[in-house]
Amino acid sequence: MKKTALLFAMIVLVANAKAQDKYFTKSGKLGFDATAPKSPENIDAVNKSTLCVLDTKTGEIQFSCLMKGFEFDRALMMEHFNENYVESDKFPKTVFKGTIANNAAINYNKDGVYPAKVKGQMTLHGETKEIESEGKIINKAGKIQVEANFNLQFADFKVVIPQLVSDKVAKSAKITVDCMLEPLKK
């Protein structure tokens, strides 16, 4: 009886430890800015329902968000973004799957700010490209904050900006990632 109880306790401990390796959020923030020097207004938007999962053991990290979830200030900009540029009805989701290259150097058990190099594949508008980014992993009170900034070239993802507004929209978008991850409890 004692042996069975001990075995059960060990299984629970191992399962718990495995779950603690993974952190996630479904309320991450992903910013987008394609403002060009000649833009009459800021061309920016934010998505507040970005899904992010990080496996601290392997350094695997994944983001995904729905294109319709980007909030713009101006209605016309939002319509053009969804209908003409990223074609949200046809390609509803953007996904990044990658790895933190220097994961071994990050101490997830100790509070602190750690630089992180992320490399992986981004799928947007039906096109998949390799991207690299530098960011920060911030450990604080059992939560992990992931911050990153990188640029996406529209041409890489076959997002076509019409000639008429080509000087008013940047050729690339600045992407900012800000996600507060919590331990995944199963």
């Binding site: 329902s49 994944q62 995904s64 729905l66 319709k68 909030e71 989701k93 199963k186």
Partner: peptide
Amino acid sequence: YTGFNADDLGLGADILLNK
């Protein structure tokens, strides 16, 4: 309604409403 996130990662599926 902005879309549906299927349960690809074992985190549960979500029907997303915005604003």
